[in-house]
């Protein structure tokens, strides 16, 4: 059976759905019987979701003004 360490190493592939069906089945079986890995998988998903909402760098106003001028010039 897939070890916990191996499962953890492949967790991103599983989450991103870049895994072959065979491997997916192995992971699912492991998750079914292993609470620590189930938690890890949930925690990694949560971490990814958190990262996705973090650091959304906004466009500086100055830049928007500058680009609008360039855009108007091109008319």
């Amino acid at each position: 059976m897939l070890s916990c360490k191996h499962l953890v190493e492949q967790a991103s592939e599983y989450i991103d759905e870049e895994m072959s069906t065979g491997k997916r089945v192995q992971v699912k079986l492991h998750l079914f019987v292993c609470v620590s890995c189930r938690r890890y998988m949930k925690q990694l998903k949560l971490t990814i979701a958190m990262l996705g909402r973090k650091h959304h760098h906004q466009a500086p106003e100055e830049m928007c003004h500058h680009l609008l001028k360039e855009y108007q010039k091109a008319e």
Binding site: S3, C4, K5, V8, V35, C37, R39, Y40, Q43
Partner: peptide
């Protein structure tokens, strides 16, 4: 986090 056989050393809280 893992022992030599690849199991969690402690249950993942």
């Amino acid at each position: 986090r893992f022992d030599s056989s690849g199991h969690w050393n402690q249950r993942n809280p």
